[in-house]
């Protein structure tokens, strides 16, 4: 059987944009210093820690301005991570766009409070109750049509496909760690079965957005000693023979992804350092193994799905 190797990695995390800050921080045993969200001041979550990506606006300079108007924070993070992985593995020079697939996951939809507030304010009737009629008459006029693209959960990977020009198969799942684990599994199978020549597998999630933080706290999906972090990661998979033929560096062989549907308590081995990154967590864990900054390879997802992989790192 022809082995599947990992040839490109892209990471955006609270340590910074790119895999370099991720590697150096984790290599030194550093932990993310979470901040507090200004949107949540004067609320019970005023001091709740949240991991944010620093200087994300700098990364946006490399993205198409028109597309940027349609992009949520998760889409920006995913695009930056996906581009880094694709460029490292030179996949656009080595594979036909139709032979590259995207297998990805996205997180809970994060509605932006600031953009919603004006619109919602216009929908209150004289008794201060929400009126659908007023929403149609006045609220919609205050809504940016492009906001729809920011809340549809398939958009981040679709935008990545447009940015990179990828035209092969796709599968986009939602919303927790288990779904990105399944997307990774599907990408591995797609390369193995020759459905594609290259799979871009990954996820981006923004659980530290204000509305998502409220929800995670409300439902107990985050423990008191944990904090959510925005992050994204993408990896490129291809057959070892092809990588060798092209003299393409590989990080190692991804032998197996194992997923078991169970009901265990969630556990993310990188949560102490990075915060809970939910959909991005399984991809970050595999990436951290590739980069030699962690040995952990087992994760229990929010819905109890357990994720494990067998990876042999090139040394």
């Amino acid at each position: 059987m022809n082995d599947v190797v990992i040839t490109g990695i892209g990471i955006v995390s609270p340590f910074g944009i790119g895999k370099e800050p991720f590697v150096s921080a984790l290599g030194m045993g550093a932990r993310v210093k979470p901040g507090c969200l200004p949107e949540l001041r004067e609320t019970p979550l005023a001091e709740a820690p949240a991991g944010l990506v620093p200087n994300l606006e700098n990364g946006c300079q490399n993205l198409d301005r028109k597309l940027l108007k349609c992009m949520s924070t998760a889409a920006i993070i995913g695009c930056l991570a996906g581009k880094e992985a694709a460029e490292e593995a030179s996949i656009l020079n080595r594979f036909a766009p139709e032979r590259i697939g995207i297998y990805a996951a996205t997180g809970l939809t994060a509605a932006r409070m600031d953009s919603a507030s004006k619109m919602l304010n216009a929908c209150l009737d004289s008794e201060k109750k929400f009126s659908a009629k007023l929403f149609g008459q006045a609220g919609l006029k205050l809504m940016n049509p492009l906001e729809s693209f920011k809340i549809l959960p398939n958009m981040p990977p679709c935008i990545l496909s447009i940015v990179l020009g990828i035209k092969g198969p796709s599968m986009i799942l939602n919303p927790w760690e288990g779904q990105s684990a399944c997307a990774m599994w599907e990408g591995l199978e797609a390369v193995r079965t020759r459905e594609v020549d290259c799979a871009l597998i990954g996820a981006a999630d923004t659980p530290s957005s204000p509305s998502t933080m409220v929800y995670l706290k409300q439902m107990g999906f985050i423990a008191d000693d944990e904090f959510p972090s925005a992050a994204g990661a993408y990896l490129t998979l291809e057959l070892r023979d092809k990588a060798a033929k092209d003299n393409q560096h590989s990080y190692g062989v991804l032998h197996e992804i194992e997923i078991k549907n169970g009901s265990q308590q969630a556990h993310d081995p990188l949560a102490k350092e990075l915060g809970r990154t939910y959909a991005a967590a399984p991809v970050l864990l595999l990436a951290a193994n590739c980069l030699g900054v962690t040995q952990g390879h087992a994760l229990v997802c929010t819905r109890g799905i357990s994720f494990n992989f067998k990876f042999a790192r090139n040394v």
Partner: peptide
């Protein structure tokens, strides 16, 4: 009223703010 809205959702008896697609 955002702060009181957040307080409302964090109260035990509140309906969930979102309903995940899974």
């Amino acid at each position: 009223n955002f702060a009181s809205l957040v307080r409302h959702f964090l109260a035990k008896e509140a309906r969930p703010l979102q309903m995940p697609l899974d």
